[in-house]
Nucleic acid binder design. Structure first.
Lengths: 211, 211
DNA sequence: TAGATTGTTAATCGATTAACAATC
DNA sequence: TAGATTGTTAATCGATTAACAATC
């Protein structure tokens, strides 16, 4: 019953803390204060302490934070102590790019299969993982445990596939299709809208006095 | 001298308004009220009106907003009335996926070239656009006008390339490398940190009571 | 004109920053 | 013990929502 609701802003920052702590760990840094970390990350020390204290006191007065310990704790908060099974729907360029991004495996995200509608792709393998016909998605979902589906299909196919996946028991979708999926709210949807990202860049470029 | 500073939150929402208005336009919807739009988008009507009024009064009392007009105006705000030249640094899976995403062209973003260090890739073409050796980047930048560089190289090469691009006059970077680029602040950096996005999904999945 | 809906001001809410007592 | 730095409360700041007069 951990009922303290974590704000969206805090959740957004957590992975970035995790990344910086991982970098420090690689450099064998043992301890770090909120002040030092805040300077590295260009945020306030106050914010770091507030953010972390949403989840408990990981530091020690007069000392700071143990990098190794804090990294592990944030990892747990992010659910990286659990194993996740992913499938990718849409084995086009983007789907294949994700499939090849082996770094995810390191964090406990195992790619189990890809699905596509294109006969030219079906049967091919990426890193030894087979591309299956989308018709087999339903039976696959019934016979295998999958928690996350990455949606890298064209915009017009996305909602139907998403609705089906929801029906077949998916827990979360990583949506790359440029549309908002409308799903039962117990299903987690994390959107990556690349087109919107480029438009933000464009806006900032346009409103940049210095050019 | 348009000195009313636009908040980050507003900028983030603008491309989504633009997408919804584009969808309405496709469906030949002529007018829409902030109330109707707010219901479609699951936001408050108040927020829509506040956001738009950062840029001027685009609506009409008693009527609402003309979809066509509002779409065009937001397009201008986003800088889509201007032509942009993009290069992609790193022609791996992700770089190629972006290069193939022809939809960007439609919005005035023209892909001019890709660059890579891998001899196996150099000389290949994607949609008729050549992959050049990274050694030629400096001379290319001097001989061509490029405003945006998409960075899809591995983490360890990213900062050096980014610093060079900055030196050679790039205006904006669309950064896909899992690191924070540290650049002069007149250079726009728009980050797409896929790994962080997946960790956010993971967090929300873990803290989801309903599973 | 009456009805509808904007543009905008005021009120509320939430997030960030500052400050400092607690404590290692 | 003295110095450093956390955890946490209080103050500030900014963003969202509500309300309504202006006006089409």
């Amino acid at each position: 019953m951990d009922e303290k609701k974590i704000s969206k802003a805090v959740i957004n920052r957590l992975p970035r803390y995790y990344r910086y702590l991982g970098d420090l760990l690689e450099k064998d840094v043992v301890r770090i204060s909120s002040k030092e970390l805040s300077e590295m990350m260009s945020v306030t020390a106050s914010q770091i302490r507030q953010d972390l204290n949403n989840f408990g006191g990981f530091g020690q007065q007069g000392y700071g934070y143990n990098v190794d310990y804090l990294y592990a704790e944030i990892g747990k908060i992010l659910g990286l102590d659990k194993q996740h099974n992913i499938i990718i729907i849409g084995a086009g360029n983007l789907g294949q790019a994700l499939a090849n991004y082996a770094d995810f495996e390191r964090r406990g995200f195992t790619l189990k299969s890809l699905f596509d509608i294109d006969p030219k792709l079906i049967g091919n393998e990426i890193r030894g993982i087979k591309i299956r016909p989308i018709d087999e998605l339903e039976s696959y979902m019934k016979e295998n445990y999958v928690d996350i589906a990455a949606i890298t299909v064209p915009r017009f196919n996305a909602s139907e596939i998403a609705n089906n996946l929801a029906k077949w028991g998916i827990k979360a979708m990583w949506n790359f299709a440029p549309t908002d999926l409308n799903l039962p709210k117990d299903i987690v949807v994390e959107n990556v809208h690349l087109a919107e990202s480029l438009l933000r860049l464009s806006f900032r470029l346009s409103s940049n006095k210095s050019n």
